[in-house]
């Protein structure tokens, strides 16, 4: 019985491994590409560029990052213009202000504490950028730039740099590295603790990158897999179930889109707070 189960799992895995090309239709929707697909109507090819031998082509995810940036700039220009007219928010400002105040009072202030103002622009930008990218992926023909590991790794590295530089500016370079090891550690533990703490510095942004990437990718894969069931099983009877579940996952993804933007900002802010106020 047990051996049979193991055998069947191994068989399935072998089949899965040998039929990797079967997933290409699914990966096509998730991965980056050199064209903007508007199936079944048309597709816009994107230019291939290279700089010093590096391929810096404008890809689908780059386009959607720019779209997110443009949307943000337009919205916030409107909001700040509105604030120039009067201190009382009106229209879109009321909505945006709620989120800004939420980020400031619920995320940044409690986690960083004193001197939080310096990091507020960065954290607000991260929050709104990730949020907009996440939501763009939920639109028809949209693509989630944050489901690309290159993007999340870059955002995490920027976070890492902000954390380290923030910590060093507050405590001094030497003071910062000294403060990494908590007080009251026995002398013989110090070498181990130093290694653990330095490793910890790098696992934090790594976790940030993987978390955002995996969460934004997983939802899309599940939706596509559920809809793919209809074509794999070749029956219409599974369609209502697939669509119902896909819709449920889609709604869940709206929540996840918000949540991941919140978590990325929250954790970045928390790590900045830990780096700046090392005594805690």
């Amino acid at each position: 019985m047990n051996v049979d189960t193991v055998q069947s799992i191994q068989d399935t895995a072998k089949v899965a491994a040998s039929k990797t090309q079967d997933t290409s239709w699914l990966m096509h929707h998730i991965m980056d590409s050199h064209e903007l697909d508007f199936e079944p109507f048309f597709s816009i090819p994107l230019p291939h560029l290279s700089l010093f031998g590096f391929d810096i082509s404008i890809t689908k995810h780059v386009v959607f990052m720019w779209l997110a940036a443009i949307i943000l700039i337009v919205i916030f220009k409107m909001v700040s213009n509105q604030y120039k007219k009067s201190l009382v928010p009106r229209g879109i400002s009321t909505f945006v202000e709620t989120i800004i105040v939420f980020v400031r009072d619920e995320i940044v202030k409690p986690t960083i504490g004193k001197g939080y103002e310096r990091f507020l622009p960065y954290l607000l930008t991260v929050f709104f950028f990730i949020l907009t990218c996440n939501f763009l992926g939920l639109l028809p023909y949209g693509s989630t730039a944050t489901s690309n590991i290159s993007v999340t790794v870059t955002l995490a590295v920027i976070s890492f740099l902000v954390i380290q530089i923030g910590g060093m500016m507050k405590n001094g370079v030497i003071g910062y590295f000294k403060g990494l090891v908590p007080h009251g550690v026995p002398g013989w533990l110090l070498p181990i603790m130093a290694i653990v703490e330095v490793l910890g510095l790098f696992t934090k942004p790594f976790a940030l990158a993987i978390r955002l990437f995996a969460n934004m990718t997983a939802g899309h894969i599940v939706i596509l897999a559920l809809l793919g069931l209809i074509f794999i099983i070749h029956t219409y009877f599974v369609a209502p179930v697939s669509i119902a579940f896909a819709l449920f996952i889609y709604l869940l993804e709206i929540l996840v889109a918000l949540l991941q933007a919140y978590i990325f900002t929250m954790l970045s802010s928390l790590f900045i707070g830990m780096a700046v106020h090392q005594e805690h």
Binding site: T59, P121, L124, S150, V151, L155, I158
Partner: peptide, 29 residues
């Protein structure tokens, strides 16, 4: 991990940060 995308992400994000800092965060905050 694709270098091109990293390049564009850095450029986009830093530019967005600078622009938003100037036109949005400072006046709004």
């Amino acid at each position: 991990v694709v270098p091109g995308l990293i390049f564009w992400t850095v450029i986009t994000f830093i530019l967005l940060l600078l622009i938003l800092k100037k036109i949005a965060w400072k006046p709004i905050l």
